[in-house]
Write a protein that binds this DNA or RNA. Structure first.
Lengths: 200, 200
DNA sequence: CCTAAATCTTTACAGTGGCAACTTACCGGC
DNA sequence: GCCGGTAAGTTGCCACTGTAAAGATTTAGG
């Protein structure tokens, strides 16, 4: 179904290109119309697949949560502990920066969308089970949950927005890649040789 | 200078209202034109103070970095250690959500703007000096820098975007306020009773 | 073959950002 | 007192964007 009139695979093409545009110019530079023009279709063609602009972003976010859940599941399967789940989290952000950005910016999304809700719930469940795998070593589980999630989310966000570079913090690591930075930094929380005890 | 023709304090009024709009609808929902209409001026009036739309966001970010630097300085002066600097960081994000959002989203900004660069540099310097105050207790200073910054930045970002609520993580704290959550979570990294040793 | 559904196009409209030219008000020097 | 410069604000214009309705094109299935 690609005949000069029908594109054939417009939905996938839009998502792919949207991700690239968002990578380069951010979610606010993303124009549905210019994107359609670039793909050689009329400016309203994407509406039949996504409804409106927000629909494209919702689809990206849903796709993103699904892949994130998958990566976290795989990482847990490898038995690397929560630190490796964190590395997987940051790795996902690095590989899919546009998806990651959109996933966590609710002002871009329709939060009531059923598919999005399901995908996010699934990803969060993986995250929680990663923390729970720390077991009895942790005395304050809510704090461990927030601490673990926040530190990797923080690393991912600061890296993606270029703030790690601009602040000079990245230079301190002398060219180490992001997963190394993540291991050394997040390792201070839940190191490979066991977490610190949480003192009263 | 407020005579029915001249507004009198347009610059401040624009910044204040822009912050409120961004709080409610995000940076994408922020329209320079509707904002001007709401303030009772023509749609091009703000241009004389900010140049263009990006100029408004740059001004917000600059304002934000200045206030953040100030709060970090004050917190360091109180001698609360790095954990209290972190609480101040999250507190700033909670009090000025729009500023915080814009400050760390470079696609919204002109990163070459001299005032913005200076304000950010000043805030980052405060952050670094907070980590340095941890002194010899820390063996891997780059990692401590990134870990400390990331964990509080992560908490702030996840809280502001509502993801702490949506994930159910906030419920685990049974209504505790954000500074308490920050102390308990970030405290696992650099607790009030001293940081964990970073093991080789 | 023929109808229904899916996909894409055309056309239209309101809202937005940016620019140029013009107007109004104040301010400092004479 | 007034006069010219400057800051602040307005009007009108253009290009671009998102959204909507209605029509065109192709495929798929009975």
């Amino acid at each position: 179904m690609a005949d000069g009139y029908h594109h054939g695979n417009l939905r996938a093409a839009v998502l792919e290109r949207a991700a690239r545009v968002i990578e380069e110019k951010g979610p606010y530079g993303f124009s549905l119309r210019s994107l359609a023009t670039d793909l050689g279709v009329s400016h309203t063609a994407p509406r039949h697949h996504f409804g409106d602009r927000q629909g494209v972003l919702n689809a990206l976010a849903t796709e993103g949560f699904a892949e994130l859940a998958e990566r976290l599941r795989a990482s847990a399967g490898d038995g690397g502990g929560f630190l490796e789940s964190g590395v997987a989290y940051v790795g996902f952000a690095e590989d899919r920066p546009a998806h990651f950005t959109v996933m966590f910016e609710p002002s871009l999304l329709d939060l009531d969308d059923a598919e999005l809700v399901a995908a996010r719930r699934s990803a969060f469940a993986e995250l929680r089970s990663g923390v729970r795998s720390l077991g009895e070593e942790v005395t304050d589980e809510p704090a461990a949950m927030v601490a673990g999630w926040s530190i990797v989310h923080g690393i991912a966000t600061l890296a993606l927005t270029g703030n790690l570079d601009r602040s000079g913090a990245r230079d301190l690591f002398e060219g180490a890649d992001l997963s190394t930075i993540t291991r050394r930094s997040a390792g201070l929380l839940f190191g490979p040789s066991g977490p610190p005890e949480s003192e009263g």
